[in-house]
Write a protein that binds this DNA or RNA. Structure first.
Length: 268
DNA sequence: CATCATGTTATAAT
DNA sequence: CATTATAACATGAT
């Protein structure tokens, strides 16, 4: 489920635990989410630490604990973060539960495409992999030149597919990619190499606009995006293009393995 | 039973 | 080596 703004929303769900100390770590050790950081290492690494801060970058999250312990989380397709009472029995899909003094922090993920990492560092800095993440759409480093340079590396790739590439557009997911193409009035399957400088500048601008509005609504309280966007019309067959004066039928088809929705009339 | 799902990545081909 | 294309991963909802 989670893209840029949903990830930001979930990150904040653990805020009630800030300042608390991890009394006990409960895991489902065999769960696939521990494929990179074994459950036992996570248990040992976090027990007794204070939860100090959290950050989100694209679809990645980073939780800082005392003593230089940094917990990285990725929600995959179905991951969620939430809180539960301090004494909480972990449910079927709750693979990581951090029991603090006053409440528990819960990571659940039934499909288990999510994952986590644990870095123990000396220098008080976030781990290197975090510092090296590419600029996200709302960073000042996400410039027109950055977008042009990235897109031009992949001339054959469809625009929508490229928007899903986390190396260039960290945080953009399936609904945001469709939304950006629709607002740009460009077909999702247009080869990236066919876009001129003006179109690439439009891509930069629209990517930022969609990201900003999503963060403002969904990212704060899972609020609704406007019905004038594609977002609320793209989920089922038979939807109608919400653009004023269009109202044409929307198309839903697979593009490179992802369901893609667009308007045949607006996006040419 | 078949199909689909807001994501990533290993692998192979070019 | 860089880019491009596809399949696989695991589970539940419909």
């Amino acid at each position: 489920m989670p893209e840029l703004a949903e990830v930001e929303y979930y990150r904040k769900q653990w805020n009630p635990g800030l300042g608390g100390t991890v009394a006990k770590v409960h895991t489902h050790p065999a769960a696939r989410i521990f494929r990179e950081a074994p459950a036992r290492a996570v248990e040992r690494g976090l027990a007794g630490r204070r939860f100090l801060a959290s950050h989100a970058h694209g679809k990645q999250m980073l939780f800082e604990f005392s003593g230089g312990a940094w917990l990285g989380l990725h929600l995959g397709m179905s991951g969620e973060l939430g809180v539960a009472p301090a004494r909480h029995e972990s449910g079927k899909h709750e693979h990581l539960v951090l029991a603090l003094d006053s409440l528990s922090l819960v990571f659940s993920d039934y499909r288990m495409f999510g994952k986590l990492s644990l870095d123990l560092v000396e220098d008080g800095q976030p781990p290197l992999w975090w510092r090296e993440l590419p600029p996200q759409p709302l960073d000042s480093r996400f410039t027109k030149a950055w977008v042009r340079g990235f897109v031009r590396r992949f001339p054959k790739t469809p625009l929508k597919t490229l928007l899903l590439d986390q190396r260039g557009f960290p945080g953009i997911g399936n609904w945001m990619a469709d939304e950006i193409c629709w607002q740009l009035r460009l077909p999702p399957q247009r080869p990236a190499g066919s876009l001129d400088d003006a179109a690439l500048d439009g891509l930069w601008k629209t990517t930022r606009h969609v990201s900003r509005e999503a963060m403002r609504t969904v990212g704060t309280d899972w609020g609704d995006l406007p019905d004038s966007w594609l977002m609320n019309h793209r989920w089922r067959d038979g939807g109608t293009c919400p653009r004023r004066g269009c109202r044409s039928g929307l198309v839903r088809e697979d593009l490179r393995g992802r369901t893609t929705c667009w308007c045949l009339r607006c996006q040419t």
